[in-house]
Simulated assay, not measured.
Amino acid sequence: MTRVLYLIACAAGPTEYVDKGVGLAQAQGWDTCLILTPSAARWWESRLGELEALTGHRVRSQYKLPGERDALPKADAMLVAPLSCTSLNKWGAGIADTLALGLVSEGVHLGVPVVAMPYFNQAQGSQPAVARSIADLRAQGVVLLDGQDGYESHPPKGGKPASFPWHLALDSVGCLVGPPV
């Protein structure tokens, strides 16, 4: 049986390389469904067809309309990567104003394993809301890979989005869920 991973990407630098994350997830045996925040979807707007061909699924960025069927299979795990500072703080505060945040806000409380790896600079990370949001999400059962356990914030204007450690995030999801059956 194929495992389904929802890869949820926010508007942060590594989202330009989300196809790399999808490819690595697929190499680990995941049927990968891609969900983008509305801002991240704008980055890929002219190339969404490429991502849909890669995943074999519609790329979602908006809530479905009432009465519409779910376009994606049920998730066995969710990975939010890269997680922007804005989305981290909205999620930590319980604000689910995007499909991306709504899925993970609900998923973690439905027993779906949820891993998140942030990507933002040290100035953003110094905002007091960041530490509170991380603590609140961890208290809910979200595995947050920050600092030495995942992604270390970079100096302002010093990020290297092409070298985002997708493999660390995916390995963490694999440890939570176990090997494919």
Rank of each mutant, 00 (worst) to 15 (best):
6 Y>K: 08
8 I>Y: 09
10 C>N: 14
13 G>N: 06
14 P>W: 10
17 Y>E: 09
18 V>F: 10
18 V>H: 08
21 G>W: 06
22 V>C: 12
23 G>W: 05
25 A>C: 09
26 Q>G: 11
27 A>V: 00
33 C>S: 14
33 C>D: 04
38 P>E: 10
40 A>L: 12
43 W>E: 09
44 W>H: 15
44 W>G: 11
48 L>A: 07
48 L>H: 04
53 A>T: 13
62 Q>V: 06
72 L>F: 07
72 L>N: 06
73 P>H: 09
76 D>G: 12
81 A>M: 09
81 A>S: 14
85 C>G: 05
89 N>P: 02
91 W>A: 03
91 W>L: 15
99 L>D: 02
101 L>H: 03
106 E>T: 12
107 G>C: 04
108 V>P: 00
109 H>W: 06
110 L>R: 15
112 V>E: 05
112 V>I: 15
116 A>P: 00
119 Y>I: 02
123 A>L: 13
127 Q>T: 05
131 A>G: 02
131 A>N: 01
137 L>N: 01
137 L>K: 00
141 G>R: 01
142 V>N: 05
142 V>R: 05
146 D>A: 11
150 G>A: 11
154 H>C: 08
155 P>W: 04
156 P>W: 04
160 K>A: 06
161 P>T: 05
163 S>P: 00
163 S>L: 13
164 F>T: 01
166 W>T: 01
167 H>L: 09
167 H>I: 03
168 L>Q: 13
169 A>D: 05
169 A>F: 07
172 S>C: 14
173 V>Y: 12
175 C>I: 04
178 G>L: 02
179 P>A: 15
